[in-house]
Computed example of a mutant assay.
Amino acid sequence: MWETPYFSYAVRELPKGCQMCVRGEKLVLFTTGACPRDCFYCPLSPWRREDVVYANERPVKRIDDIIEEAKIQEARGAGVTGGDPLARLDRTAEYIRALKEQFGEKFHVHLYTTGALTTKKALEKLYDAGLDEIRFHPDLFNPNSRLFRVEIENIKNAFDFDWDVGGEVPAVPGQGERIKWFAEFLDGLGAKFLNINELEFSETNLRNLLDKGYRPISDESSAIKGSLELGLEILRWGEENTSLSYHLCTSKLKDAVQLRNRLRRMAKNVAKPYMEITEDGTLRFGIAEYEDLDELYTLLVEEAEVPGEWLYVNREKGRIEMPEEVAVELAEAIEGDVRFFIVEEYPTWDRIEVERIPLP
């Protein structure tokens, strides 16, 4: 077992999909919130539990939205997720095929599925579309259910095709023996890897996890007590007892590495000249707010003598954007009801604001 440079742990080689993901090179393609299961630890937000499509944070209405988002990110691959993408099989296959046609065969696509819907016919459609890697997440912690038995049988179908097959499950404290059983099952079929995710709280699974006795490791973290330790135990056991590769994907990796690297790739393609790209990949700049933007623009250009090319009127957000240093100078010089701030935003489609500093 070895510690990666990404705050995670591995046995043998990381799956190709993971290698690209940690570098921020994977577009996250959410093809539907529909799913045949209702896992108690599911972290999906309420608005993603519907039949919706997103490319990263961008709502998708047509295939061109996906292509545009991939270009902005300079993505070299995509991770197809849900819900269960096979709940909308034709749509998912169409998107995979479109990405391959646009960016070429080297554009690496991996997909997550429960296994409930992976019939031979469905898998053949995904394979023909160009899928490179498939990751199974069966109802492992409900082994007596009929659905679990169907999933286990369906997983066997994946080995009829020339792609990488593996599993991906959360490290649920108290469920170590079930995860080890799954590892041995995959290893016996000739799978390549098993990914273990550190279990985390979210807005939607919080009550379920608390009711089952799980607790966060601290007030500042969403990670669950005992999950990381179980993941490490599985890796140590797996290294000695199976031939699989393992990757323990930690809560810190997702926030401090994967997201940051993706933001950096996007920021350089969406930043306007007056925006500074921070170390974290956010966009930092100054803004001025006033009830009449046209009046404010005239004031800044004609009276404060700010060059017009330094200013951008953002009517949607009700503000005028500008370089940070310009906002600092204007805040000291202009009195009245004009409000100046330094803001930081994600370079994503939804432009989430992560910081706002009032001036002066």
Rank of each mutant, 00 (worst) to 15 (best):
Y112S: 09
Y112K: 04
Y112N: 14
T113H: 01
T114D: 02
T114V: 06
G115P: 10
G115Y: 00
G115T: 03
G115S: 05
G115K: 04
A116P: 14
L117T: 10
L117G: 10
T118V: 10
K120N: 13
K121M: 11
A122W: 00
L123P: 11
L123T: 05
E124Y: 01
E124C: 07
E124I: 00
L126F: 02
Y127V: 12
D128A: 15
D128S: 15
D128E: 15
A129W: 00
A129S: 15
G130R: 11
G130K: 12
L131C: 13
L131I: 15
D132N: 12
D132Y: 01
D132C: 02
D132R: 03
E133Q: 11
E133S: 10
I134W: 00
R135C: 06
R135A: 02
H137F: 03
P138V: 05
P138H: 05
L140M: 04
L140V: 09
F141D: 11
F141V: 13
F141K: 10
N142S: 13
P143M: 09
P143Y: 13
N144G: 15
N144D: 15
R146W: 14
R146V: 14
R146H: 14
L147N: 11
V150A: 12
V150D: 13
E151N: 11
E151G: 08
I152N: 01
I152S: 03
N154R: 08
N154A: 05
K156H: 05
K156V: 11
K156S: 06
N157C: 05
N157G: 08
N157P: 01
F159Y: 09
F159G: 06
D160A: 14
D160K: 10
F161R: 07
W163F: 04
W163H: 02
W163V: 03
D164V: 14
V165L: 03
V165Q: 01
V165E: 04
G166E: 12
G166A: 09
G167D: 03
G167Q: 02
P170Q: 06
A171F: 08
V172K: 07
P173I: 10
G174C: 04
G174K: 00
Q175H: 12
Q175F: 10
G176E: 15
G176D: 12
G176R: 07
G176S: 12
G176V: 09
E177G: 04
E177A: 10
R178W: 07
R178P: 04
R178G: 06
I179K: 06
I179C: 04
I179P: 07
I179D: 08
I179H: 09
I179Q: 08
K180L: 07
W181M: 07
W181V: 02
W181E: 09
F182R: 02
F182S: 00
E184H: 06
E184L: 09
F185N: 01
F185S: 02
L186M: 07
L186S: 01
D187G: 00
D187T: 01
D187A: 01
D187W: 04
G188W: 08
G188R: 09
L189D: 00
G190A: 08
G190H: 10
G190M: 08
A191S: 13
A191C: 10
A191Q: 05
K192P: 04
K192F: 08
K192W: 11
F193T: 05
L194A: 04
L194N: 02
L194C: 02
I196R: 12
I196L: 13
N197Q: 12
E198W: 14
E198V: 13
E200M: 14
E200Q: 14
F201C: 04
F201G: 06
S202W: 12
S202K: 10
E203N: 13
E203I: 14
